[in-house]
Write a protein that binds this DNA or RNA. Structure first.
Lengths: 137, 137
DNA sequence: CTTCCTAATTAGAATAGTTCTAAAACTAGA
DNA sequence: TCTAGTTTTAGAACTATTCTAATTAGGAAG
């Protein structure tokens, strides 16, 4: 839901801030990933790219998604319902809701989930992944 | 931790109960999956089978894991840390702890996690997957 | 501008895990 | 035993992703 409308300049600035060389391909892909897409997979990004920009290779899409993920501009998730890696421009701590009807993934804010754990003391938890599955009425 | 020592006869009975034809291969694989293995992947099951039983094909291992999963005797999970499907003989509702040091997966009983959700009413939750990542000291 | 130098892009091959296919081998029931 | 339906099997096919090696583009220095 945090769909923004970044200009090329703003995206360029973001990339530089993160130490990523702002090439034409990367800026274009960011337009889609940061502004338009909703939890896209690599092939969705590639499909969009083929329709909306000059010739680009699949490898560049994968490279770029890797670079963006490593730089912390986006995050990569793996969900139980698909093999494909899903990318998320929401880099805050959060959980996910998978709508079994539509296949859509929705973000769940971290503070709408209160957890009360009773684990053995020696279990040191570094991070928690939660996926709710269900449907939206 | 629910490591049992089922005899061939007990396994055969379980398979029949679930409407699964108890072939030699299926019984043998169940010995490993239900009694010995701890969250195995398909290739771990295949490795074990090659060492411990007469010639068996990889396809049979995949078929059998599929049949056992469909029948409800075991469950299949997909975790964020690996591509491989992980099988679990614990068919109760439960969550998982992934030990980042050892790579081991441990079961977390459902009632050691209390959840307090504040989701929009129209979100109907059917199931919840939780993976804790961390280390065991 | 050129000349380097490095980094990014590319096409295609390679890989990993899994599923499919078609044939052969079983198994259960009549 | 015969037959029909299952299982098993080897190998091919498939899907998502990563790797490789060659080409191209972008800067910095002169």
């Amino acid at each position: 839901m945090k769909r923004k409308n970044y200009s090329s300049e703003e995206i360029e600035k973001k990339l530089i801030e993160k130490g990523v060389q702002p090439t034409l391909q990367r800026i274009a892909l960011c337009q889609y990933i940061l502004c338009v897409a909703d939890h896209p997979t690599a092939d969705e990004v590639f499909d969009w790219a083929q329709k909306n920009m000059a010739k680009i290779s699949q490898a560049t899409v994968y490279n770029t998604l890797g670079v963006l993920t490593d730089s912390g501009l986006i995050r990569a998730f793996k969900f139980p319902h698909t093999e494909k890696i899903v990318y998320d421009c929401n880099i805050e701590d959060h959980f996910h809701f998978f709508d079994e009807k539509s296949g859509r993934i929705l973000d769940i804010e971290a503070d709408s989930v209160k957890l009360n754990l009773d684990l053995p003391k020696k279990y040191k938890v570094n991070s928690i992944d939660i996926v709710f599955k269900g449907e939206i009425k």
